[in-house]
Amino acid sequence: MGVDADRRIHGPRPYALRVLWLYGRMLGQHALARLSYETDFLLTIGASALTQVLGLIFLGVVFSRIPSVRGWTFWQAALLYGLLLEVRGLAAAFGEGAWSIGGAVARGELDRLLLRPLPVLVQLYGGGLGWSAIADLGLGAAILAVAGPHVAIVWSFGTVAALCVALPSGAMVYWSAMLAANSIAFWTVGARGTVAFLLHGVSELAKFPLPVYPRLLAGVLTWCLPFAFLSFYPARALVAGPDLAVWLSPLAGLGSLLCAWLVWRAGLARYEGTGS
């Protein structure tokens, strides 16, 4: 066998850049693999679209009986719903990997990831995109476009800046919640995503404006499980102009991220301790 002298190495060299490039490369590969299963792909998007349309119908039915709740009209609530879809969609698009933690632990697939010279989380999240997010993002945009003109939005430089800060922060909150919740699988192998379903269920509370809830619950949704940052604070910024809460949303996002990271690290350490 002759020696092949081609010494070319694909991709950038600096480590951080290389990890990012590899992440993108994995996602690209999976996208191609996934698109070859057309039925699956369409069913995924269709199912998600159905879920969200039903959610909207629900909102319509509810508001058809009461014109406003605690000062929020149907169109304002629709705006809030649209923002929730955008924020959750953004987080779900890049958060699909979290859902594979349970299976990877149960089937011992984590071993394979631990043998590779790449951070395990990068490999997990590189394992696929959340395609259902396409439906969420599309529908969310449509709702915002329709509801927008019905709501007197306070447009200013401040509002735009607030949205630019608040939406990624909200996505970070949801993304982190899903990572932390799915990491529970390290402790109860059988649970698989149950806690994540629970937290997703709690995030449904963000479909309604915060003042609907008792003070205690509203406090929890701001300080403990800051799902109010998914939709309520950004929506309030649009309706009533930016306030302190929306400017503080990066704190909620980064705080959630830190907590999720700690849970994940503890879980991984446990896995390395027991092997299951």
């Binding site: 092949d4 002298a5 010494r7 190495i9 991709g11 490369r25 590779r116």
Partner: peptide, 13 residues
């Protein structure tokens, strides 16, 4: 190949 940054020639071999 890309994860381990293996040169193209060695990979083909």
């Amino acid at each position: 190949r890309d994860i381990y940054a293996v040169p193209q020639g060695r990979y083909r071999q």
